[in-house]
Amino acid sequence: MALKNKLVMVIDDDPDIRTLIRKILENLGVTVIEAEGVEQAFVLAASHAPHLVIVDLQMPGKNGFDFLEQRRHTATFVKVPVLVASSLRAKESIYRAIALGASDYLLKPFNASMLIQKVRKLLKDIDFKTYVFPKNELPRSSFSVGAEVTKVLDTGLMIESPIKVAEASPVQLRSEKLKEHGLSTYFFQTQNEPSVRGVTGRYFSRVNVIGLNESIIKKLRKPKAPTPAAGAQESRHSNDSQSPKKPGEQS
């Protein structure tokens, strides 16, 4: 069961107890944040959403019982299991904590294995739920990945990448070399044929440059000219920084 990357908040006024719990749980891969009291716990709740809270019942000022009552009104804590830790052995205290919503009780002084056992049990099925986007409102994202042009073809480029790109698909390409040839503002589209998998496991896709003309293809196929002085290089690049052209639009 994955404890790694679970977040546990420890609320205890005793720094030694907090440190002890932190060391035990961090060995399991759990991330621990500490609060020295109930007030601080609610401040931390604004920026931290723990999977589990361990709270001492006996603290000066607001105690663990106050936390259990108050947490019912806080979105961050309301559904999070709470393990109360206390030296109070009286059954009434234990019953009261459970009645207020504590999931389990750990008697102090506790040993590491007991703490680990209880934490594992409480974290067992604790994952934040999955949010499913409504089907008619799926947000769009775009992703970028490193690729390489392996060939310059008659009407476009052969691109090698870790993506099996769909046929006739618009593709955005960014590269210093495209800028040099005035192609950074052009639209690209894969040909109406599938990407083919190469021996290395990467895919080869033929990409057409929309609106390409012969003069630009000639430029692409020419060997690269010697690099000019830095100033001249910068001014050529800055001319190229426009919004992408529509298909058919020439530079």
Binding site: R140, F143, G146, V149, V171, L173, S175, K177
Partner: peptide
């Protein structure tokens, strides 16, 4: 000729 490919 390295490039960055962007898709949706």
């Amino acid at each position: 000729f390295p490039v960055t490919m962007e898709l949706e």
